[in-house]
Design a protein around this nucleic acid. Sequence first.
DNA 1: ATAAAGGCTCCAGTTACTGGAAGGTCAAGA
DNA 2: TCTTGACCTTCCAGTAACTGGAGCCTTTAT
Lengths: 133, 133
Amino acid sequence: MNIGDVASQSGLPAKTIRYYEDIGLIRPRRDSNGYRAFDATELHKLTFLARSRSLGFTIEDCRALLALYEDRGRASADVKLLAEEHLARIARKITELKVMHVTLSRLVNKCHGDDRPDCPILDDLGQPEEKPS
Amino acid sequence: MNIGDVASQSGLPAKTIRYYEDIGLIRPRRDSNGYRAFDATELHKLTFLARSRSLGFTIEDCRALLALYEDRGRASADVKLLAEEHLARIARKITELKVMHVTLSRLVNKCHGDDRPDCPILDDLGQPEEKPS
DNA sequence: ATAAAGGCTCCAGTTACTGGAAGGTCAAGA
DNA sequence: TCTTGACCTTCCAGTAACTGGAGCCTTTAT
């Protein structure tokens, strides 16, 4: 399989796949013409990477997960720990964004949004943190 | 005021303030010794920037907001539009993260997390998108 | 006089790609 | 056979928003 094939099958852009090779996540062999030649195993790894990335794991997480994936004797606890840490990061990010959302909605609602120049949003932004209301 | 003063008053690291000057968000004058000299107006802008950034506006958003902030005749509708667009981005991001969170929690819960090698998390990650359950 | 604290510039690195240029290869049609 | 177009290759640069560090100068306090 050439890069275009695994790209369409894994859902990853060819550019990204080349990048993953650059950073050592995969090591496809080469055909005599210099083209990358992927086998089913590499395709599977790419699929694994696509799915992990779509769940928000960082590249370094993926590297670790891939190592665990390949280690047939790994403990599931190791994987679970990584996943739980990531879960906590996601939860923190959600909380953070919710706070932003609440604060900003409050501001937007106070703004009449017409062609007059006074604007509670800008007024608030000009104030130091805290006291959104 | 030197950079250290406005750094502590605005809450922004000095490095960031220098960076903001580099990209043209602020233009403090210089003392004869080459030190940046900030007046109350610049400090206010930095405070504005700190607050806007903490609400997740991008630098380019901030540039636009700052321009509106300085334009005494701007329409509040222009500001509101920017803020609403950002609000929508935040909402999208929250939704996205929630989906990730649900999917990953489900996986984590299925994993027994002991020293045995079989792990539903890795098994799932090896599968193409969809069908998390 | 000296040492610490604070300032300056410039360079490089971070994350995870993405775009583009310049050029080689392959399969199909005229 | 030639050419066209789709793929493939590498390499360089850019994105967002800083952050760290080196090397050097200035100010302030002891």
